[in-house]
Design a binder for these strands. Sequence first.
DNA 1: GGAAGATCCGCAAACGCTTCCAGGAATCCG
DNA 2: CGGATTCCTGGAAGCGTTTGCGGATCTTCC
Lengths: 354, 354
Amino acid sequence: MLPPVPTAVNLADVARIAGVSPATASRALSDHPHVAAATRARVWRVATDLEYVVSPEASRLAGGSTGRVAVVVPHLSRWFFGAMLEGLESVLREAGLDLLLYRVGEAAERQAFFDELPARRKVDAVVVLGFAVGDDERRRLERIGVDIVVAGEQSASYPSVRIDDHAAGRQAVDHLVHLGHRRIAMIAVHDPGADPAHPAGRSSAYHAALADAGIAADATLVVTVDRGAEQGVDQGAEAMGALLGATSPPTAVFAHSDELALGAVRTVRRAGLRVPEDVSVIGVDDHPLAALTDLSTVGQPVHEQGEIAGRMVVSGLRGEAVERVVLVPTRLVIRGSTAPPRRSRRGATRRADV
Amino acid sequence: MLPPVPTAVNLADVARIAGVSPATASRALSDHPHVAAATRARVWRVATDLEYVVSPEASRLAGGSTGRVAVVVPHLSRWFFGAMLEGLESVLREAGLDLLLYRVGEAAERQAFFDELPARRKVDAVVVLGFAVGDDERRRLERIGVDIVVAGEQSASYPSVRIDDHAAGRQAVDHLVHLGHRRIAMIAVHDPGADPAHPAGRSSAYHAALADAGIAADATLVVTVDRGAEQGVDQGAEAMGALLGATSPPTAVFAHSDELALGAVRTVRRAGLRVPEDVSVIGVDDHPLAALTDLSTVGQPVHEQGEIAGRMVVSGLRGEAVERVVLVPTRLVIRGSTAPPRRSRRGATRRADV
DNA sequence: GGAAGATCCGCAAACGCTTCCAGGAATCCG
DNA sequence: CGGATTCCTGGAAGCGTTTGCGGATCTTCC
């Protein structure tokens, strides 16, 4: 453990060579007022020549902020989180903030993170990407004592940026309804924190859209999978299997994510049926995979949500007011996986159609 | 910019309450020798009760290390980098090191990173993920004055972990040869730093495999794309278009990555041909997409390379010797995109196909 | 039982920077 | 031209740790 920079240049060196006191050198380099322009220029010259960089530890210790932001994210290898992180990183870098990354995948890691709070005393703010913080977690998190921003999920407690899940769900299900589908299934992600009375999620949009279309609810057409698994594709495939096995299978499926939708497509095809002729499938996210596989979806601006979260952090650190919640718009992206239902092959159970 | 932790508990508080000096408290908490067991226990008790956490800035300033590692990565939303980062993160976290993330995507960002070296004085080590550092970049990087590890790419200058690209290429091309293909194309990624005389890459493996099989080289069967674009799929699609347009198209294609391969598959299908019946396609990586789309590939353990890089960093920081280069094994994954060539339909120029 | 040695602990000096406070120089006004 | 501002600058006090050094206490052995 040698000293990181053996030939470190310190502020004192700069000051000495520039012929000023460390105090003045510090002020000059921090662009404080009340420093003569000539002096400021001279100090900067020397600092540049010597490739001086301030010791962040000393700087922070003497009273400043850490210049660091903790980002807590459940996954890294999934596109959604990577893209959001990318947007966030670009804004933070722009603002000169460093990004401390904490991944909290499975329950155990997550628990450990909130128990030990490794980011304590190390950052000026915390950004939670893509998952909702529970009540207990919230209480612990607040012990860090810094600003907190949530992105990609709703949060009652902290400023957050996200899509309007209800609107997104409506876009998807309304699209299927408009195509003429009546037996519309849903592959839903289980949301532990969901308030059943609070009509805001993708699931509630599904029910509302069906109700508006005068379609009776059918519990056998809803399959719920647990969130948190590494890949949603297999879960989607499995869920679709259950739906196809029903006595009266759906003609269209609304999946809560593109990954689930792709799994569903795979199962449909393996069952010898065709997409979209026999079954229409639509997802949410506009994952790059969706474009590649010609999947209809409801796109959300993921990168941009990361950027907005970054701006919220920066504003908060500047002491400016930040919005409680920013909703970014989603857009329906119609590709080749959705089409009107085939009227032939409609069995007795679909007589309502006729 | 309020103080991050208003009610911060300091070492002095712990010391006072435990009835010892700060010096002893520090030694007790750092598990130094020459502290009475009873004292040590008492200090720990108090520290735990008060939820004391050391100020990393002060600790570092007084002579320790930063406890941070910089990770430089070109992309975040692509699976390869995310997966590698995930492996790296898990090891660093285990070792109690914090991960400072720097993304350097396009040339401008990359240039800026190596010019300004934002990680300077902030970290104990630097990990470069998934790209080769140029000579000039290397010189600048060394000004940080800390250990450097490269993962997912070869590096003559630093300890590195990667796959054996030549072996991987052989696995892919030999597979195609064994299936009976003779007209085998390659969609290659342009490697600016490649030494033409140094026979180590995927491209050289292609040529070697063909030569071993007694197949004459045909320059029209090799298409090179530039690296660095966000998505390789479109490039692969375009490259495949060029190959199909040749007077004598290939019956099999070896793509340097799964993303390129998927683009190639798309073009083949859009041309009305079938995979693998008309054209076999194989990639490299074993991207999750490959499993989903039934693409044959040469899999590499990405997550594990991240872990190994992490262990190299940890060893280095402990002052232990680290290996110069670790090669991780690849494995041929045969799926549905490769098959023997069709002997019928082998026209002299394949015009019959169109 | 006394001295050498081992143990344990506290004092105080860094570490590199920021910022309060006050002093000296330059500028301005009447 | 004297005194009051205004500008700039330097001295010095921290910020919260770690650690070298020496002193105090306790063993242990002859």
